[in-house]
């Protein structure tokens, strides 16, 4: 990955933001990940979206429950390792059938340089399924919008958790030495 693609947002990243806007997402909780940098910046710049920086990802699950009680839709942006931090809090969504939209940038699954990302990255899909979440994995730019639109429908139409895993194939290899 060269310096240009490192800073120029890919088209799918802005399309993803547009999907969240069309879905009327009003609170966005996140623990930052490089792969979500563009989306976080767009959310912060939008006066209709409350961006909520979290200390741990499970806070974003509880935030989404509160938002829904208040009649608003929320989303949680996190890296794959953050899924591990959410496990018990996701029982809140299942017990009460809250909608829960999660967008997960993957690490530890494709051209990974950091082996410490692999243990969690490799179990994200089964862990989320065990938590009763619907899981879709996206590896190409043209699949992003349909997958996220579908997750929005599953979550808010079906009162359940839905996650979209954004592959490292999509995001690109992390640049370790600049």
């Amino acid at each position: 990955m060269n310096a240009v693609t490192d800073t120029t947002p890919a088209a799918w990243q802005d399309q993803l933001f547009d999907v969240l806007k069309r879905a009327d997402i009003r609170q966005v909780g996140y623990v930052p990940d490089a792969g979500h940098a563009r989306l976080i910046a767009r959310c912060k710049a939008d006066p209709e979206i409350r961006d909520v920086v979290l200390t741990t990802e499970e806070e974003g699950v509880a935030l989404a429950a509160g938002a829904w009680l208040g009649g608003q839709r929320a989303a949680l942006l996190m890296q794959s390792s953050g899924v591990g931090n959410c496990v018990n809090m996701l029982s809140l969504m299942r017990s009460c059938r809250f909608p829960m939209l999660m967008l997960v940038t993957m690490r530890g699954e494709w051209e990974e340089f950091n082996p410490w990302q692999v243990p969690m990255g490799s179990i994200v899909d089964p862990v989320l399924k065990l938590c009763d979440a619907d899981v879709a994995k996206v590896e190409t730019p043209d699949a992003v919008v349909p997958a996220v639109q579908n997750a929005v429908q599953l979550a808010f139409g079906g009162d359940r958790a839905a996650a979209v895993l954004l592959s490292q194939k999509l995001i690109g290899r992390k640049v370790w030495v600049k």
Partner: peptide, 16 residues
């Protein structure tokens, strides 16, 4: 349940 989540549930509702 949801131990550790009460304040954040309150925050989501208060912001909404």
């Amino acid at each position: 349940g949801a131990m550790g989540g009460a304040a954040m549930i309150g925050l989501g509702l208060a912001l909404a």
